[in-house]
Computed example of a mutant assay.
Amino acid sequence: MSPVGLAGVGLVGQDPIRAGPGTATAEAGHPDLGEHPGLAATFARTSWRERSLRGASQASLVNNLNDGLTWGVFPLLFTDHGLGLAAVGLIKGLYPIL
């Protein structure tokens, strides 16, 4: 099946979200959650004040650094050492198994 056909099957198979006539009225009745903190307050909270948020931020940073290296720098390094496109593709394809 072609990619366009698969996309069509995926779109047809989706169940549309149904909002009743009272949905907007019910959502409008919720109280405001207050003012949103600024960037400096959010940075301080996620960097120093709350340990769980600090750990999540650090894990996310390490994960993004790892992905950036494996998708950007390592293929350039492999081609610089003389590997062809097929070999680099094979290494990148096998990497998630490790």
Rank of each mutant, 00 (worst) to 15 (best):
M1S: 14
M1V: 15
S2V: 09
V4Q: 15
G5N: 13
A7T: 14
G8Q: 13
G8V: 15
G10M: 15
G10I: 12
L11A: 14
Q14D: 08
Q14I: 07
D15F: 12
D15W: 12
P16H: 03
R18N: 07
R18M: 04
G20D: 13
G20L: 09
P21A: 13
A24N: 06
A24E: 15
A26N: 11
E27Q: 09
G29L: 13
G29Q: 10
H30W: 02
D32C: 11
D32T: 06
L33C: 04
E35I: 08
H36E: 12
H36Q: 11
P37R: 06
P37E: 01
G38N: 08
G38D: 12
G38L: 03
L39V: 11
L39D: 04
A40R: 15
A44L: 04
R45E: 02
T46V: 08
W48M: 07
R49F: 08
E50T: 09
R51N: 08
S52G: 02
R54Q: 02
R54N: 04
A56M: 11
Q58W: 09
N64T: 02
L65C: 01
D67Y: 03
W71I: 04
V73M: 01
V73Y: 01
F74S: 01
L77M: 06
L77W: 01
F78P: 00
F78M: 15
D80R: 13
H81E: 11
H81Y: 07
G82W: 05
G84T: 07
G84F: 02
L85T: 08
L85I: 01
A86D: 03
A86Q: 01
G89W: 00
G93K: 05
L94D: 03
L94K: 05
L94S: 07
Y95Q: 12
I97D: 05
L98R: 05
L98S: 13
